[in-house]
Amino acid sequence: MKSRNILAIAALTALAATTASARDEIRIVGSSTVFPFSTAVAEQFGKKTDFETPVVESTGSGGGLKLFCAGVGAEHPDIANASRRIKLKEFNLCQDNGVTDIIEVKIGFDGIVIGNAVDAPAFDLTREDVYKALAKEVSQYGRTGPNKFKTWDEVNPSLPAQPIEVLGPPPTSGTRDAFEELAIQEGAKEAGLDKKAIKKVVVRDDGAYIESGENDNLIVSKLEADPAKLGVFGFSFLDQNADRIKGSKVDGVEPTFDNIASGDYPVSRSLWFYVKKAHIGVIPGIEEYMAEFVDDDAIGEDGYAVEKGLIPLEDDERETFIAAIEEQASMTGDEDLH
């Protein structure tokens, strides 16, 4: 009797598997950097309106856009978050899979901080220093070779004489991509490398750069425990842990809210989300969600997403995206994508 019951339940589960139902909640995928802001908006949206709270998955920018571009229909996500602009390759993939109309919205900026423990010596880095300390191969004055720098004062005599040990995210992370591009490759440019050579600059793998997982909290506690190390993490973690860690100056600019917002701090990137126009009107609430995200309450000066560490857009740039959302203007393909 008992085993027969179990069998019946098993049969029922199998039956349920075949009936995939249409959704009534928005599905969002994408960047782990945008995740905390996107979830905050989703939560407020769920509370303010009668729509279901959207489901937000943190898959990384690349993974998210891949899912997003896989096709149109309830089994595919409606919105993709990205901590960089969509790539031309991804845009074309979308087009090929029938996702032809995409609305692009920029929501703000995120600073990438190179920091250490609050009691450790203060670092005043240039991007060239970062390149020389962390690139796998270093070129200087025509001489190229594997990176032999062991301590910071070998890189730049005005830096502390401590070994180069930098904790940072693994290659799967968008933060790592952005760090490589905005700090190390830009540093290579300053060191005089040509465009082709810059593209090939990657992070060294001989133990000076220590991959520490995607969890920035872990990096923060490791830095606190070991003042001899530097770490690479998002600005919101500096913001929340200002009593434990401090950010290094990069090119003479401190990583503060104002410096990142004004664009003075060089290692910052823009954050975006992409909406599938074909799903508007099919999945309820997408228009309202977009409006909530660019609302004053969310990414205005005192908005709740800004309190979570998002660096907001200037007002006039935000206005243009609010207008784009109202018109539901989709991407034309003529944008300057890479």
């Binding site: 589960t13 995939a20 995740f35 979830t39 989703a42 709270t53 489901v55 998955e57 943190s58």
Partner: peptide, 17 residues
């Protein structure tokens, strides 16, 4: 399979998120 996500709704059955 998408279970590592931010979901505020309490699932009412095995097909809910």
């Amino acid at each position: 399979i998408g279970m590592v996500a931010f979901i505020t709704a309490v699932p009412e059955g095995i097909t809910d998120s």
